[in-house]
């Protein structure tokens, strides 16, 4: 089979098997878009002074981080059907939605812990300085604390981003057509190299992420916390 044909199919799938690496990228982008803000909300919940909320949030984070993402994919996809009698996620689009829900919840919990660490590492004196200078709590957070938090979490975040793009392949357990699933359809026909070749896609993607994160890190290196 022609290399460029295989390459095209790995990237965007084929008729009857739409998807490929585009699905990996879609899942990556959708997860980040929703999980980055959701993670911040969870982080504030787990730092709350209101004990029940704190306990509730921490339990959720414990459960999500303590069980395999693959299992969570199954639960999100099959769960609604078992509980309500009719499946919530139907067809290729439904499978993608189910995968997105599972990924968003899972990654938001991991992000929340990164945010929490970043926020708690800011010395109390920064908040006190904001207060004695007559700044509001919101001003102190957005004008003083936030950029220091971002600087602190760049490195752990870059780790999570890289894990995420590779994790997107897991969605194939609920039959979301991703690049590895396409590649496997080739090996079923006796052509094995496309399966190994998919690694290159992930390598290049992670390489680009590394470059972007290095740039951010460099941009924030002008000050020390």
């Amino acid at each position: 089979m022609d290399f460029s044909v295989v390459n095209k199919m790995l990237f965007e799938g084929s008729i009857g098997q739409e998807g490929g690496f585009l699905h990996n990228i879609e899942l990556f982008a959708v997860t980040l878009l929703a999980a980055l803000p959701l993670g911040l909300i969870i982080a504030f919940g787990s730092m709350s002074k209101f004990k029940p909320l704190k306990l509730f949030t921490k339990s959720i984070v414990w459960i999500i981080r303590g069980t395999p993402l693959m299992l969570q994919l199954f639960i999100v996809f099959y769960g609604p059907g078992l509980v309500f009698g009719t499946p919530l996620f139907v067809g290729a689009e439904g499978r993608m939605k189910a995968a997105a829900v599972a990924f968003i919840i899972n990654y938001a919990c991991y992000f929340s812990e990164i945010y929490r660490g970043g926020i708690e590492s800011i010395p109390k004196g920064q908040y006190e300085a904001g207060q004695v200078l007559g700044m509001t709590k919101a001003q102190t957070f957005f004008r003083v604390v936030l950029l220091q938090v971002i600087k602190n979490i760049v490195a752990p975040m870059s780790n999570e981003f890289m894990t995420l793009i590779k994790d997107t392949s897991l969605a194939r357990v609920i039959a979301v057509v991703d690049i590895i699933m396409v590649a496997e359809s080739f090996s079923a026909k006796g052509i094995i190299w496309p399966l190994f070749y998919t690694g290159l896609y992930f390598l290049i993607f992670c390489g680009a992420l590394t470059i972007i994160f290095n740039k951010i890190e460099k941009k924030l290196s002008y000050f020390k916390s």
């Binding site: 920064q126 006190e128 207060q131 004695v132 007559g134 509001t136 709590k137 950029l147 000050f223």
Partner: peptide, 24 residues
């Protein structure tokens, strides 16, 4: 109210032992 406290706060200034400057 927080606003009232802030106004009263501004009548006095404080210099910290650890400076607490804003690094960025």
């Amino acid at each position: 109210k927080a606003k009232e406290t802030r106004e009263k706060q501004l009548k006095i200034g404080l210099v910290f032992q650890q400076f607490n400057l804003f690094p960025q």
